[in-house]
């Protein structure tokens, strides 16, 4: 069975770029447009192997989603932050909330593919 990866980003172009980079590895890819929808998708798919998460989004940002997921007991799923941000304080916050990786956009497709494979437990 394919591993599920939830992609949370308010830009559909950004989601498309991520899908283009990782779909070759056969994941079941689930899209969400912000943190609130990301939480709903995570609740609907408790067997998710990885969440790829943007930071700056309307309604609920990436750190808020990460924090809420943790408080709801869904923090066991690995989170990979994929964002334009590189501010050390934000990176440390994400790390403290249990994120497993941080990649600064624009990303190199092969590097994202490798990180997703490693974190989702699908490393080749």
């Amino acid at each position: 069975m394919s591993k599920k990866v939830i992609i949370v980003d308010d830009s559909r172009t950004a989601r498309l770029q991520i899908i283009n980079a990782i779909s070759v590895d056969g994941y079941e890819l689930i899209e969400a447009v912000d943190g609130k929808e990301g939480l709903e998708k995570l609740r609907a798919h408790p067997d998710t192997a990885l969440v790829v998460l943007d930071l700056n989004m309307p309604r609920m940002n990436g750190l808020e989603m990460l924090s809420t997921a943790k408080s709801l007991g869904q923090g066991g799923v690995p989170f990979l932050l994929l964002t334009t941000e590189a501010q050390p304080e934000l990176v440390q916050q994400a790390r403290a909330l249990g994120a497993k990786a941080w990649i600064v956009k624009p990303f190199i497709p092969d590097q994202l593919r490798a990180a997703v494979a490693k974190l989702s437990g699908a490393a080749r």
């Binding site: 590189a86 990176v91 990649i103 600064v104 956009k105 624009p106 590097q111």
Partner: peptide, 16 residues
């Protein structure tokens, strides 16, 4: 310098 374990810029990958 950014603290150890922080990204330096675009394209950087940090695994925790």
């Amino acid at each position: 310098e950014p603290p150890a374990g922080s990204p330096r810029g675009e394209g950087d990958v940090i695994l925790f």
